[in-house]
């Protein structure tokens, strides 16, 4: 169980990012996606869950205690932090020892993401994609009860994407709590049971209705996430427009999908003029992978 209470965070480096105050709880045996960009504070929040950022106010509790790495928690940051002088197999053996877990064959662990040939390579000689894969292998095959993963499907071999999702699902079914941060609705809906949308540091929405908020867009399609005070007027303009496959709205938020991104953008622009509303947020997504 992860409990976040009245949490207020501020990044120490530029650009300054603020999160909160925000409160939520995450139950074990489920996966959660923090959806937003770095500017929305999802990465900062993930660091705070890992115990690497001190809250300015409020608290984070993991299994009744303060966050901390080790047996309970595995954290993979955007840029993985690995000891560059070790060989991959030596690193995985050391990781098991430090976590107090029974040793497992490094090759078997690496095979989970299909990267067993990396076992004898030096970490310092790995590409960024390979280093991310090794960091993910370590976290996903550890016995940590909480997994915190920043953009786990980015910078991966396309063949590894499905394996990460499967391995994460297996860990969750075994009782772990998984929290991923991502700017992609596609990745969020693939990995999270619950989606927590962040907008400029605030928790804008928490939903498990993924079909509505992250509908599939198809290999050539696109998805637009719109926020506007006049969302209901926009919804009236967009509903029934054949350019869109789906139009879904709730409160100030709209999400639409379609097959022709240019036509979609033009239709939204026309609807915005017609309804005479201003947009607070317009996030455009297209699939990057054909995995």
């Amino acid at each position: 169980m992860i409990e976040v209470a009245d949490l207020l965070l501020r990044s120490s480096s530029r650009p300054r990012v603020e999160v909160g105050p925000v409160s939520f709880s995450l139950a074990p045996g489920a996966s959660y996606a923090l959806v937003g960009t770095a500017a929305d504070g999802v990465d900062l929040l993930l660091e705070a869950l890992a115990g690497e950022v001190a809250p300015r106010r409020g608290s984070v509790k993991i299994a009744e205690g303060p966050p901390g790495p080790g047996r309970a928690l595995a954290y993979v940051a955007h840029v993985p932090c690995l000891p560059e002088v070790f060989r991959v197999d030596a690193y995985l053996r050391l990781a098991s020892r430090l976590r107090g877990e029974p040793p497992a064959l490094p090759e078997d662990r690496l095979a989970v993401l299909g990267v067993a040939p990396l076992a004898r390579r030096r970490i310092g000689g790995l590409s960024q994609e390979e280093a991310r894969a090794v960091a993910l292998v370590e976290a996903l095959t550890s016995q940590a009860s909480v997994l915190l993963l920043a953009e786990p499907l980015v910078d991966l071999d396309p063949r590894a994407v499905g394996r990460v999702a499967a391995a994460l699902q297996a860990r969750v079914e075994a009782g772990a709590t998984a929290v991923v941060s991502t700017a992609s609705l596609e990745d969020a809906s693939a990995l999270g049971h619950d989606l927590l949308y962040f907008d400029r540091g605030k928790l804008a929405r928490r939903t498990s209705d993924k079909e509505a908020w992250a509908p599939p867009m198809g290999p050539r399609g696109a998805r637009l996430f719109i926020r506007s005070e006049g969302a209901r007027f926009l919804l009236a303009e967009l509903a029934g427009n054949p350019t869109f496959d789906q139009v879904h709205g709730e409160g100030a938020d709209l999400v639409v999908t379609g097959k022709d991104p240019v036509a979609m953008a033009a239709a939204v622009a026309a609807a915005t003029r017609q309804a005479n509303v201003e947009l607070d947020l317009l996030r455009f997504e297209q699939p990057e992978r054909d995995a």
């Binding site: 790495p69 080790g70 932090c81 690995l82 000891p83 050391l94 990781a95 430090l98 976590r99 370590e138």
Partner: peptide, 18 residues
């Protein structure tokens, strides 16, 4: 130190539970 600060030089091991 791996040309880093003292705290950050051991970060990769601390993240594993050291």
């Amino acid at each position: 130190l791996g040309h880093d600060g003292l705290a950050r030089s051991g970060r990769s091991l601390v993240r594993l539970g050291a």
